[in-house]
Design a protein around this nucleic acid. Sequence first.
DNA 1: TTGCCCCCATACGCTTTGCGGATGGGCCGG
DNA 2: CCGGCCCATCCGCAAAGCGTATGGGGGCAA
Lengths: 304, 304
Amino acid sequence: MDLLLHFRAFVRVAELGGFSAAARALNTSQPAVSRQVADLEARLGARLLHRSSTGVSLTEEGRAFLDAARQALDSADGALGAVGARRGEVAGEVRLGAPLAFGRLHIVPRLPALLERHLGLSLDLVLGDAFGDLVQDGLDATIRIGVVTDPGLIVRRIGLTRRVTVASPAYLAKAGAPRHPDDLAKHDCLRFAGLSTGDTWVFERAGEVARVPVTGRFRASASDAVRTAVLAGMGIFVAPVWLFGPEIASGEVVTLLEDWAPPAVPIQVATSSRRQVPPRVRAVTDHLAAEFRLDPLLTDYGMG
Amino acid sequence: MDLLLHFRAFVRVAELGGFSAAARALNTSQPAVSRQVADLEARLGARLLHRSSTGVSLTEEGRAFLDAARQALDSADGALGAVGARRGEVAGEVRLGAPLAFGRLHIVPRLPALLERHLGLSLDLVLGDAFGDLVQDGLDATIRIGVVTDPGLIVRRIGLTRRVTVASPAYLAKAGAPRHPDDLAKHDCLRFAGLSTGDTWVFERAGEVARVPVTGRFRASASDAVRTAVLAGMGIFVAPVWLFGPEIASGEVVTLLEDWAPPAVPIQVATSSRRQVPPRVRAVTDHLAAEFRLDPLLTDYGMG
DNA sequence: TTGCCCCCATACGCTTTGCGGATGGGCCGG
DNA sequence: CCGGCCCATCCGCAAAGCGTATGGGGGCAA
C-alpha cells in the first residue's frame, strides 16, 4: 500500500470537501479515491471523514491526521528535492496563479528562460482575474496585484505597479482631454471590476489628494477586456503602466493628467502559510522577482 | 511507485552497508531492494550509493538524501500514530533489545500486561548479552545494564541493580565461606564476560573500598550460564539481586559478605538520538520503568 | 595462485495489487 | 416528483512488483 498516495488522496478530499472533486483534482477516478481513503481508515482503525451524499466533513481523528499527513507529504517532497537542491537544481511541477492580462503580458514571456534554466521544472499557469482559494485550486503560489490581507497567506512583494490615466487618441479627439481629475466626471470612464477601489478613482499631486467618483458605460471583470476597450476608443482608464507598455511608447494610447498620479499598488506573490515553500516554488518566484526588478514598468527602483 | 517503501529500502541499505543485509532485515529479497534503490536513483537523477562487490558506501547526494528520507519516514510514521495517539492508544511493532537473563526473568513476565493494554502493539524482543549496534540491529530501544557512554544514544535510567555475593550451600559446605573480600582470592570465582569490571571485583563498606583480583575455573559470556553454574555449586559470584530473587528467598543460594556491597549499576534504556522516540516505543519503556519501580529487586526507592 | 564464497545486477515468469467503467442507493434542488 | 450529483461497491483487466534463477566481480583463505 502506497502510503503517500493515500495520504495525498485524503488531504485532497479534506481540502476540496468531496471524493469526486478530489478525484478530478488528482486526475484519477472517484472509486480510486474512495478506496484509498477507505483503506487508510481501515489501516488507522478510525473514521477520518463523515460521509454524506452532499459531501464530506472531517471527524476529530481526521482533523488530527490531516496535519500529520500534510507534514509527511511535505517531508517526502523535501526528501525528493534534497538531492537536486544540493546542486542548485529544482524539479517538479509548480502551479502558479496569476491575473489574466498580467500573466499573458509579463509572466509568460519570462518563463522560457526559467524553464531552460531548470530542465526538470514544469509549470502550470492558472490564469484568472478572480482570485480563488489557493488551497482549493491546488496552487503552489499566486500572483496578486493589490493589497492582500488574508492571514492564511504569506505575501512577498516582487514588484510595483505604477498607474497612469490613459485613453486612445480617437477618444480624445471625440471627447477632449481632461485637465484636472474633476473633469473625469464628464467622461466615459472604463472600469475594472477587479480593483478594490471601486468606482472612486484616487489621484495624488505633491501631497494633494483628489477622489473622483466616476461613471461610464462599460465595465468588465477582466483587465484584458478593458485594455481592448481603451484601444477601441471607448473611454478613459486608470491603467497599470505594464498594461500599455508598447502602446504608450508608440502613441497608440496617450497618457493624461500626468502630474496627477494614481497610487501605486504592489505586485505580490502569495503562498500558503501552512506549509513551507518548497525550493521549486521558490525558484519560480525568485526568478520572477529578479526579472521584474529589471523592468521599469514593474519596479520603482530602476527607471531605465 | 511506493515512495516510502523505496525510502525505507535505501535507508536500510545505507545503515547496514549492503543490499543483501538490508534485504534480510526487511524480510524481502535482494533483487527487490536492489531495484528499489535503483528506481529511487533514477527518479532523483543521481547516484545515492557507490557499489562495490564488497558492499556499498554513500555518495555525497546519498548522504544528503539519507537525512531527508529518515525524516520523511518519521513523519509518515508520526501521521499513522497521530490518530491512535489522540486516544492514548499505541500500535505498531517495537523491536526491543535486552540482556538474555534479564529479559527472560524480568521483561518477558511484564509484557502480557503491556500487550493487553495496547491491543495494536506487537513486540519483537531481541535477547543477547552482546550489545550490538542499535541501528544495525534495527532496534527501537535496548535495555542495558551498566554505564553507557555512547554519544549516539539517549539513555534513560529505569531501574537500579544492587548486587550481592552469592554461592550455593553445596559449594560453601565444600569450600567454606569467605569472611572478607580478600578471602575470595582462595575461592572459585565465577566470572561473567559481559561486565566491564573485568576480573577485579569491587566492594564497599561504609566508605571503605576493597578491590579484589579474582580467579576461577569457569567463565561465561551469558549471565544465565553463570546463574546455572552458581546453582550447580561451581563457585562464588557477585550477582545482580534480580538474578536470584526466588533462590535467595528459598535458601537455594545464600548471600555472603553482606556488609560488603558491590557497587550498584543502573538499568537503562537506550534509544537512538538521531530520531525522536515514537509513542509506541515510549509506551514500552514507560511501562517497564513503571513496573520496575514497584519491584524491590530493581529499584533503590521502594524496599517493600 | 587457485578456489570458494559473498556481493550486486539482470532476466524472466507469475502473482497480486490497483485501476477504470458500470451500477446502485441516497440526498438536495428545481 | 424528477433529474442531477454524490459516494459505495462490484467486476474485468492491465501493469507493477515480487521471488527464483543466473551471471559477473572481488576478497579471503588455503
